[in-house]
Amino acid sequence: MKIVVCIKRVPDMESRFRITADGKLVDEAGLKFDMSDFDGYAVEVALQLTEKLPQGEVVVVSLGPDAVQEVLRKALSMGAARAIHLKADRVPADGFAVARALAAELQGGGYDLIMFGKHAMDTMSGVVGPMTAELLGLPNVSAASKLDVASGKGTARRELEGGAEIVEFPLPAVVSIDEGIARPRYPSLKGIMAAKKKPLETKPAQLDVARLEVTKTELPADRQGGRIIGEGAAAVPELVRLLQTEAKVL
């Protein structure tokens, strides 16, 4: 069983974000970065799936500048066997361009499963996984909250609004991972030392011209909150009055 997990390096979402002078992008200078949350879950699921099997290999891929090697190393220290860095000056906002570069790399790689996080924490789009599946002509399951794989077949659960569906699919396939499926392990200290010796291959990403551009990025206006109407149960009548007359939601 050979699994590849596509991971992204994103800023720490607890950061206080600033916008660049031209108003177009988030200013990433001075921010701390890490592997995107859902990608961490995907790495964990991939490791758990292969650990159960006599022969299993987890490969990780990331596209972007040299700094993405940090998250590749992190995945290696969690237990992935090797890493591929698709080098690009920056990650384009156009998810389709990213999907094409990934598909070009993954084509013919002999992977049984190609995994993604359900979306990256910065772009929050979740389009690269399904697009890559389509470009490779593979079955796709988005946002799996459970995943089992046995004898060339996968079973996954997907959360829907007010319910869920259980789907079955043949391998190879593309699966993106939702929260709650597995808690990513802490890179063990031995794992961190071992990661130094694992192969990390760098090659240029094959990126087309992007046809989707970020033209503006804004911080949402602060809510005018902060109005405390009272203390304890005594404040309830006033709250109900405001909900009826001012907010008109009751």
Binding site: G225, G230, A247
Partner: peptide, 28 residues
């Protein structure tokens, strides 16, 4: 949470919520 809330009540949820439930039921 109070910084983003339009209306805040400072108090123990176990005390305030039952009162609010009763008041909402009445309003409805």
């Amino acid at each position: 949470i109070f910084k983003v809330a339009d209306y805040g009540i400072v108090g123990d949820a176990l005390e305030v919520v039952p009162a609010l439930t009763a008041a909402v039921r009445e309003a409805k």
